[in-house]
Design a protein around this nucleic acid. Structure first.
Length: 489
RNA sequence: GGCCCCAUCGUCUAGUGGACCAGGACACAUGGUUCUCAACCAUGUAACAGGGGUUCAAUUCCCCUUGGGGCUACCA
């Protein structure tokens, strides 16, 4: 029945999102696991668009999904815009293929038309739940005669096609993550395989495509476990081997519910826009439900590919922890070549209108500034806010101003300090620091008594990179101007 | 309600009967460094859900309870 688990020679896995919105982190990780598995085994990673939901599927969503995967570096070997021998890769373009299998099922009496109205079905389910019974189709149309079918059809009553599931016995399969899973067939439902609009449903189209596309391993979320027996039943009815199944745990939000759009920013593209690195997202998401087993956490794509295996996927749901994501992004940023970070910073600064598009930028100066905040960064979107005082007048925060500048004697002290600063030449870190420290000593003050007020005067806030570095970049005139503002109290 | 999956620090995890008074990471706390913040270093707080078995020995195997999650559509 099953393929040989050990046979990893011709692995073919697919990521099959439905284009009904943007990708969220749960789907994204499913894509990552499939991709890692394909790359680890030297197999093929296939992208298939499951657009059978006509009402909700949109081309925009397809674009977002593809853009997300591309940004993350998850390249597919077959799929829309990549081609392949098993296309088309949009389900709505594969209707003729489904037709072929539907005919087989009808011929074998494994499928039957059902004319029941949705209202009746809803009521039926409701009643069954009330009676503490598993909700399943009651079989009203199960044994309609040819004449009855013709009669109902001629009246123009819409119908769906239901699959005749086995009502006895047990469906058992070996899940690569969970081990043996058994489901009693008595809880299975004669589910719909063709809708009244003649479109295939997920559980049917998915099986047909996986057969036709020669998929060897289905790696998907835990939430599909309950679909699996139904799909296995179709494989059986079609006399086809089922692929291996690996149901990976779900990613949960902080409320411990399955991650969904409700949990705020959820799509990879949104993370991109917030200033996260794609490698970080891949690294972090892979670690949600999988671990190499040797305490490594920061891992490159190649290392992940090298170490990845389905056996090491764990079977517990994981809560998404954005704090740890931030930490990891910070680690990657610190390791990043400065020039690369400067390019990103330039973009952020333009976005924040701290520098103009047309402006000739002093890259040397910018890279000095960016160098000062590299180790302080968690995500790129923080850049403008962190260094705005280099480009604009500082925004003075009330608290530090009160604490460090509006204190007795401070303005007097700053006035004297300005005289010292004024004479400094060259205006660089070393000269500045020794002069200011000499000043501090001469006045019998503590370093903080002078440095804190300078910081607030120059940056507007209580925390900044080392102040002499800041002063050097700001230049003498700007420093004097900003400090003198506080000499008149 | 029915069925399924799961159960180690707050969070992500290591652990597959003895090497575990349970290891790593994030977060948190304290100290060091220091002009602040960050980074870095050191230290610390913190977990095997509960109850039964099996075994010479259970975090590890089995059962029950409890708890959490998922599915229960002419969505995927």
């Amino acid at each position: 029945m099953h393929n040989n688990n050990a046979d990893l020679k011709n692995v073919r896995v697919r990521f099959a999102p439905s284009p009904t919105g943007s990708l969220h982190l749960g789907n994204t990780r499913t894509a990552i696991f499939n991709w890692l598995f394909a790359r680890h085994t030297g197999g093929k990673f296939i992208l298939r668009i499951e657009d059978t939901d006509k009402e909700r599927s949109t081309p925009e969503s397809v674009n977002v999904i593809m853009e997300s995967l591309k940004w993350l570096g998850l390249d597919w070997d077959e799929g829309p815009d990549a081609g392949g021998d098993f296309g088309p890769y949009y389900q709505m373009q594969r209707l003729d293929k489904y037709k072929k299998y539907i005919d087989i099922l009808i011929k074998r009496n494994m499928a039957y038309p059902c004319f029941c109205a949705p209202e009746r079905l809803a009521e039926m389910r409701h009643q069954m739940q009330k009676q503490k019974l598993p909700p399943r189709y009651d079989g009203k149309c199960k044994n309609l005669s040819k004449e009855e079918i013709e009669c109902l059809t001629s009246q123009g009553i819409k119908h769906v096609l239901r699959f005749r599931v086995p009502y006895t016995g047990v469906t058992e399969f070996n899940d690569l993550v969970h081990g043996k899973i058994c489901i009693d067939n008595s809880v299975l439902d004669d589910f719909v395989i063709v809708k009244s609009n003649a479109g295939p449903t997920y559980n049917f189209a998915c099986v047909v495509d996986d057969i036709e596309m020669k998929i060897t391993h289905i790696i998907r979320g835990d939430d599909h476990i309950s679909n699996t027996p139904k799909q296995i039943a179709i494989y059986k009815a079609l006399c086809c081997n089922s692929p291996e199944f690996a149901h990976i745990p779900l990613i949960l939000g902080h409320d411990k519910a399955k991650l969904s759009k409700r949990h705020g920013a959820a799509s990879p593209l949104e993370y991109r826009d917030m200033g996260y690195l794609p490698q970080v997202l891949v690294n972090f998401l892979t670690l949600l439900g999988w671990a190499p087993g040797d305490n490594r956490e920061i891992m490159s794509g190649d290392e992940l590919i090298e170490s990845f295996s389905i056996e090491k996927i764990n079977d517990r749901n994981a809560v998404f922890d954005s704090q740890k994501l931030d930490w990891m992004n910070g680690v990657y940023i610190r390791k990043m070549p400065l020039e690369e970070l400067v390019d990103i910073a330039l973009e952020e600064l333009k976005k924040a209108e701290l520098i103009k598009d047309t402006e000739e930028v002093d890259v040397n100066k910018i890279s000095k500034i960016v160098g000062l905040i590299q180790e302080r960064l968690k995500k790129f979107s923080e850049i403008p806010q962190l260094i705005n005082y280099f480009f604009d007048k500082p925004v003075y925060e009330e608290k530090p101003v009160r604490k460090f500048l509006k204190k007795d004697g401070v303005s007097q002290m700053l006035q004297e300090l300005c005289k010292v600063i004024e004479e400094e030449e060259p205006f660089d870190i070393e000269t500045l620091e020794s002069a200011v420290r000499e000043f501090i000593e001469k006045k019998g003050l503590k370093p903080g008594d002078v440095i804190h007020p300078i910081r607030v005067a120059l940056t507007g806030r209580a925390a900044s990179p080392p102040i002499f570095d800041v002063m050097e970049i700001l230049g003498k005139q700007t420093c004097l101007k900003r400090i003198r503002r506080f000499c008149i109290y």
